[in-house]
């Protein structure tokens, strides 16, 4: 029992030292800074990811054939990578391989297509004269990007080729509302009015382009 106060004193001393030691910790940790200073983090990069990036860079460099080859290897390994399939379709389109581009896009769930891909698909169907398939895609695209007058013009032209004059003229009017001073569009509009046998209106529109 007599030793209890001594024990208490020793405990106090140890507590005080530990308290102080707590502040000293940063000194001990000073040398490292990171738990693991090795740069090996992220070593486990999958090949397919590197190949995807390679395919993209090849397309940026204009090496389209090599890019397509890498995309094909990638999609052989990861067939569900819709984004990669869309990118490959765009490269194929640039290579004037419309049928292959369309084939690549047709294999994708339509809900996964972004606006640019929908437009690309619409253009590809238009080029192949599959107007009935192109039209809904143009409309879908223009719902997302109503201000894209170039795309709307392609739809308007296509509708006029299909003799859907009223629909075509409606699209032309939207374009002209946005671009009233565009003489070329107005002349095209006038041509469709003529095909629709609305000669008076066509003449008035043509006259406006000559002022």
């Amino acid at each position: 029992m007599n030793r209890s106060p001594a024990c208490l004193a020793a405990a106090c001393l140890i507590a005080a030292l530990l308290f102080l030691a707590g502040f000293e910790c940063p000194f001990a940790a000073e040398t490292s800074g990171r738990p693991d200073a090795s740069p090996v983090e992220g070593q486990e990069i999958p090949d397919w990811m590197a190949r995807w990036e390679l395919a993209r860079v090849l397309s940026y460099a204009g090496r389209h054939e090599e890019s397509i080859s890498e995309y094909r290897k990638l999609l052989g390994e990861k067939p569900d990578l819709s984004k990669a399939r869309i990118e490959m379709a765009k490269v194929l389109f640039r290579q004037k391989k419309g049928a292959e581009a369309l084939g690549a896009l047709e294999g994708i769930d339509a809900r996964q297509l972004d606006a640019d891909s929908v437009l690309l698909m619409a253009d590809l169907y238009r080029d192949r004269k599959s107007y009935d398939r192109a039209a809904p895609l143009y409309r879908e695209y223009l719902e997302k990007r109503p201000g894209d007058n170039a795309a709307r013009l392609r739809l308007a032209e296509m509708l006029s080729w299909e003799k859907q004059y009223d629909r075509s003229l409606a699209e032309y009017r939207k374009i002209l509302a946005a671009l009233p001073g565009d003489v070329q569009v107005r002349r095209k509009y006038a041509m469709v009015l003529m095909w629709a046998k609305r000669y008076g209106e066509a003449a008035a529109e043509l006259r406006r382009t000559l002022k």
Binding site: L8, A9, C12, A15, A16
Partner: peptide
């Protein structure tokens, strides 16, 4: 013993304050 304990406590507090 009591004096010893008190002096140790004072020492600890003084050291902490100094720190």
């Amino acid at each position: 013993v009591l004096s010893f304990v008190i002096s140790i406590i004072i020492l600890a507090l003084a050291t902490t304050a100094a720190y």
